Amino acid sequence: MAHTHSHEPSSQDQNAKRLMLAFGITASFMVIEVIGGLVSGSLALLADAGHMLTDAAALLFALLAVIFARKPPSGGRTFGWLRLTTLAAFVNAIALVVITIFIVWEAIQRFMEPQPVAGATMMVVAVAGLIANIVAFWILHRGSEEKNLNVRAAALHVLGDLLGSVGAIVAALVILWTGWTPVDPILSVLVSCLVLRSAWRLLQESVNELLEGAPASLDIAALTRNLNRSIPEVRDVHHVHVWMVGEKPVMTLHVQVIPPHDHDALLGRIQHFLEHNYAISHVTIQMEYTACQGPDCHLNEAQAGHAHHHHH
């Protein structure tokens, strides 16, 4: 890596700019698709607009996360505003489920009695939507060398949306060539499944963050074993808490150690171990020289097993 940390604000600004641009494109096209869907009588376009809403929302949260990450934490909100993005994601996920239910319900109605669909109008809007998605994806994808999770997630969203637009185009083609209108509700249901999938993932992740869950990829038992194994002075690790704030893991733990010559050096080694192996940079460590004496220590004894304590 040639460049140092001095460039970071500019990369943040780049990300913010890209997200802002992609959000503008997606949001305006969502409106166009809604109008196009109503004018042409196409449900597939409305479903795709629903999908565009998921993207616009994902882009907006990514943008907010970049902006909030810059705001310094205040006395009352020591983590700044990052949790707000999680809350917004949660609300968005629920809205998406509602949209999906609405579209599937409408599709069932249309199977019963097919509605006329203006194939040409539908085609024009769907193709325009596809182009808008490609442009948005291109803008975001240029930004994903910086491993910003938000920007990458947003790019994936837009990629999923390409499928929705392609679905609407296929429906429009079938209607133009054969005049068989039920293809429109069929494809709208398929697009809704895409929406539901992203909504479900969003719901899982946001609920996990709101319940102070550990990141899904983290195995805490393995982490404590590795810490014990890698740093010989460490006898026991307990009271481990890991949670997520705006995609950054935060951790607190108690470590029982053999009294070191250099307290700070050992602390530094433990911090380096966590940052290097688990990318947890925000960690608070309480070092103890005797076995844990608190009221809830026996809880940890049961988990860690007594073996740890006896063979010393």
Rank of each mutant, 00 (worst) to 15 (best):
A107E: 07
E146Y: 05
Q293M: 01
V234K: 10
S28E: 00
G164I: 07
F111K: 10
L87Q: 05
I99Q: 05
L162T: 08
G294V: 02
V117N: 06
I280G: 02
N92I: 05
L21W: 11
V242A: 03
V255D: 06
W81Y: 14
A214N: 10
I131F: 08
V104T: 02
Q256A: 07
D262Q: 13
H7D: 10
N208A: 14
L203T: 04
I25P: 08
A95G: 14
R201Q: 15
L159N: 06
E146D: 13
L253C: 10
D219I: 07
W105M: 02
V170H: 04
M20I: 01
N150L: 05
P249M: 15
G41T: 04
L210A: 13
L149H: 02
T252L: 08
L159Y: 04
E212N: 14
L53W: 02
V124T: 04
G24E: 00
T224M: 11
G129S: 10
H5Q: 06
V191F: 11
H272N: 15
E8D: 13
A126W: 00
A136Q: 07
A49F: 06
L21V: 15
Q271Y: 00
H308A: 12
H276Y: 11
I99W: 11
G246I: 05
T284Y: 09
R229D: 15
G268S: 08
T86Y: 05
A62L: 06
M30L: 11
E288Y: 03
P260T: 01
R152G: 14
I25R: 12
H5Y: 11
L82N: 07
H51D: 15
L46H: 10
T4R: 09
Q14K: 10
S42K: 02
G213A: 14
G119A: 15
F61Q: 03
E8P: 00
R229Y: 10
H276C: 02
L162P: 07
V151P: 00
C292T: 05
F111W: 12
E288H: 12
A304D: 08
V183F: 09
R269N: 11
D48A: 09
E209D: 13
A57G: 15
A128T: 03
A118D: 09
F90L: 12
I25E: 06
I94Q: 06
